[in-house]
């Protein structure tokens, strides 16, 4: 409980000096919008910038080839290891790009799914719940195979493997994101919903001004964790759909040179280099997002 006597003095504001009642030359500060808070804004801008870069820049070539013909010597060699780095980065770039595009789908579709599942109409919420649970409880590996054969079996549908990949990742993680959104929405205190009724707010205002601004900051760290998880699932697409990501790179090199240790070790390093900073960003986000509740 707050206490008048122990409150730090409020910073002086424009109207602190005594002013005759009725004249309000008052500057309204617009600093409390959740999406304008720097600790929310900075990571979001970074991610969005990264995403758009990845989305805009042309996909790199999917042809990987080593320059060494080492004969029968397949023991570990640092020279060999380092000369693969540029090609690994190319593969990693393709993987990251699919992750980002997929996650754009996941983050937006997830919110829609969460709202559908919360619907008061059972003919909306029940199918939504079924679809979400179904996708969430089947493995992404199986879904990827299924998407592939589905596209092959549909004559009028031709999709680039990379497109299939990020659609599958997008839908799969949308179901996880929807559960995160749902938890975030449920974490908004009951009093906020009641105040919205008492002020007679229309549903659009209630959701966009009251509920989502309080729910989404709580959800961002979870979404960040799912982004990292999705990044680690995308190489499954290389195995199933032959997209030209990091795993495809390593497989190609192994097939050409019979030297598997270096490329696989290298993609491990590649993942580490991306996942560590991402995990740090998420943790920072978690720490900074703490709303002062009423």
């Amino acid at each position: 409980m707050a206490d008048d006597n122990h409150r730090p003095e409020a910073p002086p504001t424009a109207s602190d000096d005594a002013r005759p009642a009725g004249t309000f030359e008052f500057e309204i500060e617009q600093s409390h919008k959740w999406y304008r808070r720097p600790e929310v804004l900075v990571p979001v801008i970074l991610v969005v910038l990264g995403l758009s870069l990845l989305a805009v820049v042309e996909a790199p070539s999917g042809r990987f080839r080593s320059q060494f013909t080492p004969g029968r010597d397949v023991s570990f060699g640092w020279d060999y290891f380092f000369h693969l780095v540029p090609q690994m980065l190319r593969g990693l770039y393709t993987t990251a790009r699919a992750t980002v595009l997929g996650f754009l789908i996941a983050a937006s579709l997830g919110l829609v799914m969460a709202l559908l599942r919360r619907s008061e109409r059972p003919y909306v919420s029940l199918p939504a719940a079924f679809v979400i649970e179904f996708i969430r409880s089947t493995p992404i590996l199986v879904q990827m195979f299924f998407a592939q054969v589905l596209v092959r079996a549909t004559p009028w549908l031709t999709l680039n493997p990379i497109v299939i990949l990020f659609i599958v990742v997008g839908i799969h993680y949308a179901t996880y994101a929807s559960e995160a959104y749902r938890a975030g929405i449920n974490s908004v205190p009951k009093g906020q919903w009641e105040a919205s009724i008492a002020l007679n707010l229309d549903p659009a205002t209630k959701w966009t001004r009251i509920i989502i601004p309080q729910a989404v900051p709580n959800v961002l760290p979870t979404l960040g964790n799912y982004l990292v998880a999705a990044f680690k699932d995308v190489p499954i697409g290389d195995a199933v759909l032959s997209t030209a990501g990091v795993l495809f790179f390593a497989n190609t090199i192994r097939a050409d040179d019979f030297r598997p240790v270096e490329p696989y070790l290298l993609i491990g390093v590649g993942f580490l280099l991306v996942s560590l900073p991402a995990a740090w960003l998420v943790r920072r986000l978690e720490e900074s997002i703490e709303y002062e509740r009423d």
Partner: peptide, 22 residues
Amino acid sequence: QHFNLFPHMSAIENVMLAPVKV
């Protein structure tokens, strides 16, 4: 009893919301 103010808005924004939006 427990005020139920909107914690992400300033006092004046809390007061202005319904007149503007509703």
